[in-house]
Structures are given as structure tokens and as C-alpha cells.
Amino acid sequence: MIVAEAKPFDEIKEMVNGYRKVLVLGCGSCVTVCMSGGQKEAELLAAALRIARGIERREATVDAKTILRQCDEEFVRQVRDELSSYDAVLSMACGAGVQGMNEWLRNVPVLPAMNTRFIGLCEGQGKWVEVCAACGDCVLGVTGGICPVTSCPKGILNGPCGGNKKGRCEVSPDVPCAWVLIYERMKERGKLEEFKKERAAKDWSKRQRPGRYTHRP
């Protein structure tokens, strides 16, 4: 799932400064699941903007709404007329949603309220962790199902660096050393022989941007 987080309020406020009538548009998919851009957050952001504008004695039409997905034209089309009555739409979707909306909603600028962060898993209520870097060359099959490209800040492929301490990562003691986890998992599964195999350098050409995928090439 895609995880995004709201931009700092001041940045958002600046961004919509020149627009009188603004719609904060939540997205009902990934960002709702990660709690940062669903209806609840859209309402809250809209309220905050109304207050800030109220204090500055400025036009304070800021509404909130949510659609199921901003990254598909069909969903956007259903609300196009309604959205067209605003001077700007402040999208709480991921970067894909914002770009799609701009493409399909030519007459209204769609601005990003979010910083799109990563593909992640929930690790407890209200907490997400990046687990996949979308590297295009998946190694999970030989790393016990734990991604070193993502979970190790250095993304190294042949075992831990010398920096782990008490099973924690050198870069931040808050996170476990991915390679310690991989080693343990593979040991538990009797796959240490696999662990010992040298892994060649990654083929980064798979990550050439913009990535494209065709279902039936």
C-alpha cells in the first residue's frame, strides 16, 4: 500500500493562498487506510484552513469531500462538475492521484497536500513502515522474504555491514538490522546455504524512470 503524509500546514496554506474557493479532496483508498488522507483528515485540514483564513479575514470557502480513488479517470469524472466550481482542489491523494486529477480536470488546478512516502505495511495502529522500494528486481526469494533493498538503509545484498549493534541498525537504533532479521529467518527455515551465496550487484536498469508496465506487451 502507498503511504503518504500531509505536508506542513504552512506550505499547504501558502500553496492555496491565491485561490478563493478551495476543495480539500480526500482519497478513499491507500491514504485513507494509512489514515493521512481520508475523509476525516480532509475535514480537519479544511477546518484548519478555514480558521487560518478567518484570522486573516480572507474568503473562507474551504470544503471537504472524498472520492474512492483519484488515480482513475472514471472516479474523477463523476465529480468533475462539482469540482469545477472551485478555484483550486487540494488533493490528499498520493502523487499519482494529483497528477491524474490535473490531467483529467484541466480547468481547475489540483495541488498536492501530501508528501507521498513509500510502499508500506502497518506495524501497529497508526504506524506504517516502508517495506518495498519498487526496485523492479525483487530479491525477496533469496532473502527470507525480508527486503534488504528497503529495510537496510544501505540496501546491501551480501549480509550485514559491520555497523549493527545489538541487532539494531547502525543508521538508527530504532530499527532492527535487516540483515540480522534475514539471517535469523533463513536460519529458522534451514536456508543458511542460500544465505552464504554471493549476490551480484543489482541490475538498476530495471528501475529506469518513468517505469512502465504493460499487461500484455
Binding site: 540496501g155 546491501i156 545484498l157 551480501n158 549480509g159 555491514c161 555497523g163 547502525e170 550487484a201 538498476w204
Partner: peptide, 21 residues
């Protein structure tokens, strides 16, 4: 060592390859 331990913490680390490679 990772960039975070140094004096340009906002640098983009490379790690295209690593020690064994």
C-alpha cells in the same frame, strides 16, 4: 558509513554496490 553519521546528512547515499561486490 551511512551519510547520517557525517556532516552532509541530507546527501543522497549511493550504495550502487557494496563491499563484497
Amino acid at each position: 558509513d551511512y551519510v547520517s553519521s557525517g556532516d552532509h546528512k541530507d546527501a543522497k547515499p549511493v550504495y550502487d554496490i557494496e563491499s563484497v561486490q
